[in-house]
């Protein structure tokens, strides 16, 4: 019988304890960072999809978001900067029973890793990419990102950013992703729903999550506290599933159009491999050698 307070506490269980590496808590993220709630929404969404957790793998690159792989109680791989997507492609294609998520930041996926994202979307390889966009490089101390809005300040844009940022959902859609969505870290229920949809869906799925960075982005841009930043994102958010992903870039103060903009079916990379090779390979005798290889 619990008769004192400490024993009562021992019997309490954290609701996420089944899904997280509790022996690694507390995590390294700053207070008011969006990553904690995004991680919760992610695990909730996977749970809703009712898949075997043993068959779900998470691959991350480098950065604040890159640390997600270290906290999920799943097969998880913390790889090199920008290369989570090709690593995940190898993992998925070598064991096609896996559900593979790439969870990484905007700098990791769109600056150093941009080419991989475009090509994975083009191939429609069956992986799910969650890009947590905080408009800045957090872990390295607030440098400019390919998502930093025009005129926003960063430690490498001391006079304000003069580079045109990427519209992430526009890039993913243009490259051929089967599923493209954007939410903010406050849209917990919607986020979980999108993760559930991505888990069930075949093909390359892309989800952008707008996340507050109080420590560097807010500080450099008079954004106030993390809570102020969150509140601002909430007030600016508009849900419009019918929006054209090409036409909803983000800036410092304008609307943040959220929704599921693309949810279509096209053959995945592996389906194309099978339909492309099966018939021909069967016709090909193993000992047949074309004139080029000349056995």
């Amino acid at each position: 019988m619990p008769d004192d307070k400490s024993q009562q506490t021992e019997n309490l269980h954290h609701p996420m304890e089944e899904y997280l590496r509790m022996d690694r808590m507390p995590h390294i993220w700053c207070s008011s960072c969006g990553l904690g709630s995004i991680l919760t929404a992610f695990m909730k969404g996977v749970k809703q999809a009712d898949v075997d957790f043993n068959k779900v793998a998470v691959v991350s690159g480098i950065g604040c978001t890159g640390r997600v792989a270290g906290y999920v109680k799943l097969d998880s791989y913390h790889t090199t900067h920008g290369r989570a997507i090709p690593f995940a492609t190898g993992l998925k294609l070598a064991n096609r029973d896996l559900t593979v998520f790439v969870i990484s930041g905007d700098g990791d996926l769109f600056a150093i890793g941009g080419n991989h994202l475009i090509h994975a979307a083009r191939r429609n390889v069956d992986i799910n990419v969650i890009c947590v966009n905080n408009f800045i490089y957090g872990m390295t101390g607030g440098q400019n990102a390919p998502t930093t809005p025009l005129e926003a300040y960063s430690s490498t844009a001391p006079y304000g950013n003069y580079e045109q940022p990427f519209n992430l959902v526009g890039v993913a859609a243009a490259a051929g992703a089967s599923y493209v969505a954007r939410w903010s870290a406050l849209h917990m229920r919607r986020l979980a729903e999108s993760v559930e949809e991505m888990t069930k869906k075949k093909g390359f799925c892309f989800l952008e999550v707008i996340s507050p960075c109080a420590t560097v982005f807010a500080r450099k841009n008079k954004g106030g506290t993390g809570l102020d930043l969150l509140k601002g994102y909430k007030d600016r958010s508009v849900i419009n599933h019918n929006a054209n992903p090409q036409e909803i870039p983000l800036d410092m103060n304008g609307e943040i159009v959220c929704g599921v903009f693309i949810n279509k079916d096209r053959p995945t990379f592996w389906e194309n491999v099978l339909s492309g090779t099966e018939r021909k390979v069967k016709k090909t005798n193993l000992y047949y050698h074309d004139s080029k290889t000349k056995f």
């Binding site: 290369r83 090709p86 995940a88 492609t89 998925k92 070598a94």
Partner: peptide
């Protein structure tokens, strides 16, 4: 394809190298 294996021509050598690590962790010799 004759041996039920996977061939991918990647966008560059960086991706190629990362992919064979991923494949190896899935249990494939790569």
């Amino acid at each position: 394809p004759q041996l039920d294996g996977v061939f991918v021509q990647f966008e560059d050598e960086i991706a190629s190298m990362a992919s064979i690590l991923g494949a190896s962790w899935a249990g494939a010799k790569s």
